[in-house]
Amino acid sequence: MEVRTIKVFTTVDNINLHTQVVDMSMTYGQQFGPTYLDGADVTKIKPHNSHEGKTFYVLPNDDTLRVEAFEYYHTTDPSFLGRYMSALNHTKKWKYPQVNGLTSIKWADNNCYLATALLTLQQIELKFNPPALQDAYYRARAGEAANFCALILAYCNKTVGELGDVRETMSYLFQHANLDSCKRVLNVVCKTCGQQQTTLKGVEAVMYMGTLSYEQFKKGVQIPCTCGKQATKYLVQQESPFVMMSAPPAQYELKHGTFTCASEYTGNYQCGHYKHITSKETLYCIDGALLTKSSEYKGPITDVFYKENSYTTTIK
């Protein structure tokens, strides 16, 4: 009895394709271990004539594949690729409408935090270190965002349907971005203890939790000093293409032309909904596939993004 075979390709990165001759009487799992086709788990399936010449994702289970996976995804987590594939199996079914010149995501599976993050990423200057993220990001900007969303979920250790947080998501993504040249110098002034300067680099240099107003941050924000008295913390120097200011959701007025974009969060910790506000020729609110415009805006804002380049204080 002759062994019926077909020729397929296996890959971990969709760049390096490895030619395989597979036995049609055995499952993919018996031949390769966990195997995925377009995100779908085909591990328990036997090869079919229609699979001839198709590319299958496999887990990096030998040295060659491990090197290829690390170079593309910059992670050695053995569960990463499987999590990416199972997320992709959902995100490829989502709709990605162009809204006001940006790629958004039609609401499904509690994905409003991903839509808000995706919209924000198209408006701030950011370059990702893992080629996987950078490639998928370019495709997302062009309207094909399924891979990018699935990668975000995998890097953030999230599953489809789980509630997510924009600030946490951005923080994970910033860790995989090139923020080497970003720098922030802060000064804390206390009447009792004097003053202390701190220099922050990388992710810490672009994120701040405690106030939404970048102007206020430049002037000074009140913080408790270690001595128990009130101290003032203010920005001395900022070198970065953008800054992200966050605070627990509270009524906040966004003035046209003073910011790049913002995240609105309605609801409580267990259950809520994100919308995205962007400042173009007027203010726009993007909620999944829905767009509304207004000249002014007041609502429960939790993150505001500002364009920056270089700032030095005039406070002496």
Rank of each mutant, 00 (worst) to 15 (best):
E253K: 08
Y214A: 02
V304S: 00
N178E: 08
K93C: 09
L114V: 08
E281W: 00
K280E: 08
A132P: 05
C271L: 09
F80H: 05
D303H: 01
K191T: 11
A289T: 08
E253I: 15
S295K: 09
T266N: 07
N309C: 08
V67I: 15
H74R: 12
N178Y: 07
A231Y: 00
M207G: 05
I286N: 00
V99K: 06
K307P: 15
L121T: 11
L102H: 06
L133Y: 02
C190G: 00
Q123H: 06
R141M: 11
Q237A: 14
L121Y: 03
Q134V: 11
S263R: 00
G101N: 11
L121M: 12
C156L: 07
A117Q: 02
Q251M: 14
T260H: 08
T76E: 15
V99E: 04
T159I: 09
I6F: 08
T313H: 15
K229T: 10
T35Q: 05
N187F: 07
F9E: 10
E2K: 15
E215W: 05
Y214G: 01
V160Y: 04
V243G: 01
Y234D: 01
H273W: 01
M209E: 08
K298G: 06
I223S: 12
Q20R: 12
M245R: 02
H51F: 06
V166Y: 05
H51M: 10
H273S: 00
T226G: 12
Q196R: 14
D109P: 04
Y72F: 09
S25F: 11
K44E: 14
T64R: 13
Q197E: 11
A150V: 02
A87Y: 01
P130D: 03
P34W: 14
N111S: 04
S181L: 09
A142Q: 15
I45H: 06
A154S: 08
F128Q: 02
Q123M: 03
E215C: 07
N268D: 12
L102F: 11
T91P: 03
V42Q: 12
F80M: 05
N268I: 06
L37T: 11
K229R: 09
Q31H: 06
K106H: 15
K95H: 15
K191A: 12
L126Y: 04
I315T: 08
L283G: 01
R139G: 08
N268Q: 11
E239A: 07
T211A: 12
Q237C: 10
R139E: 11
S295L: 15
T169Q: 03
N89V: 15
R4G: 11
E253Y: 08
F148M: 10
Q98L: 09
L291H: 11
N309H: 05
T198W: 13
T278N: 06
A142W: 09
Y252E: 04
E144I: 07
K255P: 05
Y284F: 11
F305Y: 04
H90G: 14
L17C: 04
V185C: 06
P34Y: 08
C190W: 01
Y214M: 08
K280Y: 08
F32D: 04
G29N: 10
L114Q: 03
L118C: 04
E281H: 05
N110T: 00
G53K: 11
C261Y: 00
P249R: 02
G143R: 03
T312C: 15
T75R: 15
K183M: 14
H176P: 01
E71Q: 10
L235A: 02
D180F: 12
I124C: 05
A115P: 02
H273E: 00
A205K: 00
T192S: 14
D180I: 07
M207Y: 06
G257Y: 00
P60N: 07
I301N: 00
T199G: 04
T258D: 12
C190P: 03
Y113E: 02
T120V: 09
I286Q: 00
C261W: 00
M245F: 15
E68A: 08
D38N: 12
G220T: 02
Q238C: 01
W94D: 05
K46R: 13
A262D: 00
K280T: 07
A136T: 09
A140C: 12
C261M: 01
K307A: 13
V99M: 11
K183I: 14
K316S: 11
Q31T: 14
W94T: 03
A154I: 02
F70G: 08
G161D: 03
I124P: 03
V203Y: 15
S104I: 03
V42F: 15
